[in-house]
Design a protein around this nucleic acid. Structure first.
Length: 454
RNA sequence: CGGGGCGUGGCGCAGCCUGGUAGCGCGGCAGUUUUGGGUACUGCAGGCCGGAGGUUCGAAUCCUCUCGCCCCGACCA
């Protein structure tokens, strides 16, 4: 993409309403625009980042055998009257009435609807296990939206629903989600720690939240700092292997890690050596629940088991805050000049800075680089504006693309361009072709290490 | 929902107390200049001061109502 033809309304000054760094940077980098309290437009750059995240979520869910679909944002109230939540949910639910005076609501979550779909089409345990998920906009009429997309009223969430014949199978589905989530967050460059959580209004017996450590997190967290060293890395996971998946979960949940909701100081002190005890703050970026027959019983979602008995199906629901992740990643990865995108989620993998726009040789070198990178599947953002070098560098730093290729007459005279890492700030001079090769290797290697293959 | 604050060109703000028909910086446009980290200068365009009502000869400034937004707290992906 040529920047001169793109829509990237960057701001030099920080809008007054933005209090936390991710919100400020998203506004300054022209990623979002607020339309009402907790409601945002996603401008082109923000939309690209959001889509990168969404794509990783899709890939990892499908790798785990979960099936994508799409349910509507608007739901009939009657479904929620069946489960009893139409009254329980309270003011957070946005209620709407259509022209025929029918009660609708903008879905805050989809347990009722997915249960309705399930009961209409599934009769036998032989059709299980089943995990359906979608990535859809939700609306929760928060009393006090804040922190930009981290705590919006309208937000994009991946929510998945598991259906199993019994508790043991359902717990495997739960574990499978935990592992797939760990992979998902790792690919985004995040360290998200699963923490045992309190169940809240969705209700459930087993539940973990995934917390990204950040100063600005809304939850206070207590943990053994050795959990942050745990990585899935490139290891292969067989999602059908119950014992294997359970072992991974055990590994990642063995060390003490809890939010203030479930924190027990006595256990904390007994289990964690003092040198490893950490208290910090975290951003919740996902949650998994096993809730048994809470919805299947009142809504009549039953299957016939292998003994011919009609039994309510065991369910779980599992969410990832997709739009929130954009903010969480920025909270976890930025510096005083701007965003520092991890390779996996960068809206563009690399930026090209032309230091002498209008200079024939420099323009030509940039055009060649652009074509070569595009050829390798690495779409660059080419800053071809008629701006000074300083302005171009400042823009690149602000929007945080992980790599920058700087092209100017001085280097070109020696046949060199400059490849710079946004994260480390280190630059290396090399020929244009070598720079393209280097980037292709970097992104290929990153993809493999994070399990992007397959 | 309780407490606090703010709405003035695209953004950040001043003016309001002590009413007299709007100002600064950034940004935008045109040009000159500059050219490896937000260059300097000149000129131009752009707001009727969130909205409604009231007081007054006169309201961005005072009063009333209303809408919106932000912050702290209690609650949530």
């Amino acid at each position: 993409m040529r920047l001169s033809r793109y829509f990237l309304p960057v701001l030099k000054e920080t809008p007054a309403e933005a209090q936390i760094v991710s919100h400020r940077l998203m506004l300054r980098a022209g990623m979002i625009r607020q339309q009402a309290a907790g409601i945002y437009s996603w401008l082109p750059l923000g939309w690209r980042a959001l889509r990168r995240i969404e794509q990783i979520v899709h890939e990892e869910q499908q790798r785990a055998g979960h099936i994508p679909m799409l349910m509507p944002t608007l739901q009939p109230a009657d479904l929620w009257r069946e489960s009893g939540r139409y009254d329980d949910y309270g003011q957070e639910m946005l209620r709407i009435r259509d022209r025929h005076q029918r009660d609708l609501l903008y879905g805050p979550t989809n347990e009722e609807m997915i249960t309705d779909i399930f009961r209409a089409h599934v009769e036998s345990y032989r059709q299980l296990p089943l995990t359906l998920y979608h990535i859809q906009w939700k609306f929760r009429d928060e009393v006090r939206p804040r922190f930009g997309v981290m705590r919006g009223r309208e937000f994009l969430m991946k929510d998945g629903y598991t259906f199993d014949v019994d508790r043991a199978a359902a717990l495997h589905a739960y574990n499978r989600h935990m592992v797939s989530y760990l992979r998902t967050y790792e690919r985004m460059g995040l360290t998200a720690i699963p923490m045992r959580a309190a169940s809240g209004p969705i209700g459930g017996d087993d539940t973990h939240e995934f917390l990204v450590l950040a100063q600005t997190g809304e939850s206070e967290v207590f943990y053994d700092d050795r959990v942050t060293a745990l990585k899935l890395g490139a290891r292969q996971i067989d999602y059908d292997d119950r014992a294997g998946v359970a072992a991974v979960c055990a590994e990642f949940t063995a060390l003490y890690a809890r939010t203030d909701e479930t924190h027990d100081p006595a256990v904390f002190e007994a289990q964690v050596p003092e040198a490893h005890r950490k208290v910090g703050r975290g951003i919740e970026v996902g949650q998994i629940f096993y809730f048994g027959t809470k919805y299947s019983e009142p809504m009549g979602a039953v299957v016939v088991n292998d003994r011919g008995e009609r039994v309510p199906v065991h369910m779980g629901s599992h969410g990832i805050g997709v739009s929130r992740l954009v903010g969480a990643i920025i909270e976890a990865s930025h510096d005083d000049r701007g965003i520092v995108w991890p390779e996996g989620v960068a809206p563009f993998p690399v930026g090209i800075v032309n230091l002498r726009q209008g200079d024939g040789a420099t323009d030509a070198a940039c055009a060649e680089l652009y074509a070569a990178l595009t050829e390798r599947g690495l779409e660059p953002l080419y800053d071809d504006r008629d701006e000074r070098a300083g302005a171009k560098f400042a823009t690149m730093d602000l929007i945080g693309l992980p790599w920058r290729i700087t092209v100017g007459p001085r280097g070109l005279a020696a046949g060199k361009v400059e490849l710079t890492s946004r994260r480390t700030g280190e630059s290396e001079e090399m020929g244009p072709a070598a720079a393209v090769d280097r980037l292709a290797d970097l992104f290929c290697a990153a993809g493999q290490a994070q399990g992007r293959d397959g």
